[in-house]
Each structure stands twice: as structure tokens, then as C-alpha cells.
Design a protein around this nucleic acid. Sequence first.
DNA 1: ACTTGGCACTCGTAGACTGGGAGTGCCAAG
DNA 2: CTTGGCACTCCCAGTCTACGAGTGCCAAGT
Lengths: 337, 337
Amino acid sequence: MLDDRKLAILRAIVEDYVSTNEPVGSKALAERHALGVSPATVRNDMAVLEEQGYITQPHTSAGRIPTDKGYRLFVDRLSTIKPLSTPERRAIETFLNGAYDLDDVVSRTVRLLAQLTRQVAVVQYPSLIRSSVRHIELVPVAAGRLLLILITDTGRVEQRLVETHPELTDESVAQLRALLNACLDGRSFGEVPLAVADLPERVPAEDRPVAVAVLSVLLETLVERNEEKIVFAGAANLALGDFSKGLRDVLEALEEQVVLMRLLGEAGDPATLTVRIGAENQLEGLHSASVVAAGYGMDGQALARLGVLGPTRMDYPGTMGAVRAVARYVGQILAGS
Amino acid sequence: MLDDRKLAILRAIVEDYVSTNEPVGSKALAERHALGVSPATVRNDMAVLEEQGYITQPHTSAGRIPTDKGYRLFVDRLSTIKPLSTPERRAIETFLNGAYDLDDVVSRTVRLLAQLTRQVAVVQYPSLIRSSVRHIELVPVAAGRLLLILITDTGRVEQRLVETHPELTDESVAQLRALLNACLDGRSFGEVPLAVADLPERVPAEDRPVAVAVLSVLLETLVERNEEKIVFAGAANLALGDFSKGLRDVLEALEEQVVLMRLLGEAGDPATLTVRIGAENQLEGLHSASVVAAGYGMDGQALARLGVLGPTRMDYPGTMGAVRAVARYVGQILAGS
DNA sequence: ACTTGGCACTCGTAGACTGGGAGTGCCAAG
DNA sequence: CTTGGCACTCCCAGTCTACGAGTGCCAAGT
């Protein structure tokens, strides 16, 4: 259906359009890329490509621009992921190695990715589900209030307030803490619910309500507040791009956690890049945007996802290279700390 | 120099221009506001106001718009802060009362403020300097690594990794923890450096390096990473406003923590609102932006600041009302938790 | 059967021109 | 000091035109 030359032409159209942001015509194409055929031939091929829906013209008698379908074909079959340059790799290393904190890793990552791709970067906090409990701390902060602190082996620290009754003694708290740590130390999060099931029965009757309250908050932390945290950076890059009109929609989407989650998509194999182009994004208002995302994590298990949001007219090979490199490196950092 | 009528005219110009976004002319002014004088008189007064630099015309034979100086006079002498409506107050209450966490309070506040003012909201995390130590926790997370957790009486939790030597025993850690808590429990942050000065001498010689390492991280946390955390929300509102051109600059400024800090200004009396108009902002690129900021905190002590960034052409009375109300309410929430 | 050059046609863009209108500044009279 | 009148300025929106890039199609060449 599409012979090699037509594919080459499509590739050339995508590349030229991405770099110039102007519809590309047959003549310029035949000149700039050594296709070995005349503009007229290119025109014929372009007519076919248009008929098949890979390219379109903004208006009669203008050059062609790729459609979503055209970009899709380009990404799937016509391009190879561009590895980062050595200076870029070095920048990633030095920048991420300076982090001293999970928060810091994430915030550095998102800024780094935004700078590298000159687009909007989105990073999801590592999921707790694959982590295990390193330590649990219970601290009375006021009459009737306990602070529950949960430390994971990935270095993440979660904190939640628990309301209890005011007469709780310090010994009861210490006992409960000891019990919790005995039950949970080293347990993976998946095992937690089972491991604590009989815990209320193992405390003195008068402390039972407290134990129940603490456990319910603990389970809530594990389950509900689990992977909702997402940050983004590089919104300023939107102002450069093609989002003259839809900018408001895009900015709005970025401020909605839920939308960001949907944007990055389901966690999959960390090594695989997901590319969603234009209308492939479900969301109204992101129809002229593309998302390049990847899972990251350790031991080949994806803990969370990160990615980049940009205009459909995007340097896919370069962006994919950057996303992949950053995802890998963050995985290493997490595994090493 | 400026009689009452001229002031009334200036006020009318500001109000009309803010609501319509169009230069306001003498005729429309005389009609819409019951000034009791003819357009010609208004013109004369406007000429004076222009000569004094309070208003200007975008081009000859257009209406007048306020200058920064005009807005300044308006804010200082011609307007009163507009209290929020009861539904708005109720919205603040219900929205902020649902927070269960310092992070949550801050993130809810910033979104609330953005929604209320339809502008960009900026909120600084409460400073640690007025807080006191509720509890210190030391948890070994890996060979040679301790996690230092610092809980303040405002409910804030700070965490930092400390590198130590691998042979550290659990007893040493427990001892150090006990010592730290004995020294610091209930101390205000200002007192901490003095209180821990002689601590290394009170531990066994072999644990001294660890103690020193922990202390240096602790002091660093108190001093350096103190008030740097700032969040913003509502960037989408920029796309509505007058920032057609400078939008990129503004977005860039918002992503720089340091810039945001400067934007909110020095902490002052929590009850006072700071308004910085147009070029009063030092930053290049924010010359057509205004900032309305206030301190918030408890016991009449400002812990941090929050505010709103918008176009110079802004509804100052309304924005000031919202900022003040939110600042007060956040203070209450913090004091109550 | 595919490729090529030629050619007429389309259509968006930029520049020039124009009329209308809003608003001003000034002046002389009240 | 205020007011109505009036000439003047200048932006804005609309129309028109010339231009040029690019296309589609056709007939001739390989």
C-alpha cells in the first residue's frame, strides 16, 4: 500500500514540519531531502498519503502537515529513539545525584525533564505498593492526637494525624508502637492488611479503640492516598509552543491531579515508552497535545510513571530519548538509596 | 492639589477600567457615574490627573487608563477592602476544615485562593522559626544511614538522611535519640543551636562522629531549608488575563522558588496586607503584574506569607478581601491543630 | 506503468487604502 | 470654574488588490 518512497516522504514531512512549524510543499521537500525524484512525483505520492489520512493541508494550496495518524506511523515505524548526548547524560547524573530526599529526587527529576525536552514534564511519586515497611512511629502531639509516621524502604515518609481519646498514656502508645513494628517491620505493603488483622485483640481492652483508629488510618494511607501525588514543571514552555488557543485548557488539565494520572496512563513495563498522540488522549482540550510517558522503578518493576506533555508537533525521537534516559536513571537512584 | 472630585474621577476610572478592560472616556464616565458635572469638566480634570501621572492614554484620542501611580493612590486612599460574601466565607471554612495534614492545608489553601480570586495564588509553607520541637526520631534505614525526623508543634514533619558509619549499633542510636529528645523537647527553634552545643561531649567517644553528623544535619534543616518551600496554583487564570505577551515570563517566574519568595516579600505583621503594583515589583517581566500578599500565622506572629499574583488591572478591593480572609482563616486552622 | 515538466487555478497573506467613530484639547460664553 | 461647541487626531474594521506558494491535472517522455 505504501511503498518505501512514500514512507520516506512521510518521514521527511514530519521532520521538516517539526523543525520549521510550516506546512511543507512538494518543491521544498524534493530539494532538501535527496529523494532522487521530481517535485511532481512527490506531489503524486503526497496525494496518496493525504487520501490515506496520513497528512492533510490546512487549506487548499498550502503545504501538507502530518495528521495524528501520520505521527503515529512515524513514531511506530519511521523513527528511532534518539539517545542523549554525553553532555546531556552527564547533566542528568550530576543533577540527580545531588538529591538527598525522595521529595528532592522527584522535584529535581521533573525540572530536569522539563529542561531537557523544553516541554512540560510530569512525574508521579513512586507507588507505595511495592515498598515495604521500614519503621512505624507513633508520636503524641497533643492531647488526644497521635502522629502516625510511616517510613518505607524507598525512603518515603508518610505522616497522618490520628484522633484518639485524651487520656491515652505514654506507655500505651509505646506498647502499641512496639506491637506495630513487631508485626510490620519488613513487610511489603500488600501483606500489611493481613498482618494487622488480629492486632486489636492483642492489646489491652482499654487501648483497643486507639489501636483500631490507628490501623484504619494506616490502611487508608496505604490504599487511598497511595499513588495520587503528581507534580509537573515547565509550564512556561507551553507559551512557546503551538498552544496559542488551547493554552488555558492545558494549564487547567495540569492542575488536576486526576487528569494528570490519566495522562500518564497505566503503569506498565518500565522499559516501554508509551506515546499518545493528539486525539488519542481522551481529554477534551488536549487534542492537539501528545504525551510521551514511561514507567520507572527498580528491579524491573514499575513503581510509577513519568512523562512529557507537548504539542502534537513534537520532536518525538528526541523526547522519547530523554524520557527513557531519565526514567532509567531515576530508577537507578531509587534502587541505590 | 487633587480635590475631591478629581479623586472621585480617578476612582471611577479605575473601577470602570477594571471591569471593562477598555480605556474610559470622559463622556461614558460622566454618564455612568453620577458626578453631577459635564463631560467637558471631566475632561479638564482628566487632563490634570494625566499631567500628575495618575492616568495615561494608550494613544492619542483614546480614553484614559490608570498608571501604576494611579492604582497606588486608588489602593491607598480611594478604596476599602471588600469583605467576602457569606457563601464565600462558608466555602473557605468547609474547604479548609477538611484538611488532615499540613501539606493538605497548604495545598487546599493555594487552590482555594486561586479559585476565589480567579488569579494565581502563592502560598509559602509556615516557617519553622517560631515553632518548637515536639519530637525527634532517629531511624536506621540501611547500613550507615539514619533517617532523622523532626516533628514540630505546628504539625510539620521534616525528614533528612544522615550518613554515618556502618557499624553503628541500635543501642547507640537509641541513646542518641533519647539524649536529643531530652535536650530539645519543647524547645523553640531559636534555642536549638545553644541547647545542643555540648551534646557531642555527652555521648561515648565512639559515637561522637555520629552525633556530630546528626547535629549538623539537624541545624542545616532548621536554618537552610527553612522557608524555601512555596507552592502556587491557578496558572490557568493567567491565560484569561492581560498577559498575552508576558505570559511566558510570568510562568517562568512562578517556577522559580527564589523569585516567588521575593514576590511575597518580607514577613511582617500578619494583619497587614502588602500590595505591590506593576513596576514596584523588582522583577523584569512582572512589570504589568501586581501582587497582593499577607502574612499568616498564629498568636499575631506571622509564620509565613501567602498572596495572589494578577494583572495590574485587578479588582484590588475584592482580591484584598479574599487574601485577608484566607490568611486569617489559615492562621486559625494552624492554631487549632 | 511510472515519472516528469508545464500550466492554469486556488487561496491565504500582507500591504494599502478608506470611512466611521470615539475621544481629545481648546476656546469662548455662561 | 463650568459648559457646549467644534475641529482635530488616530485607532479600528472593513475592503480591495497583488503576490506567491502550492496544488491538481494533463500530455509527453522513458
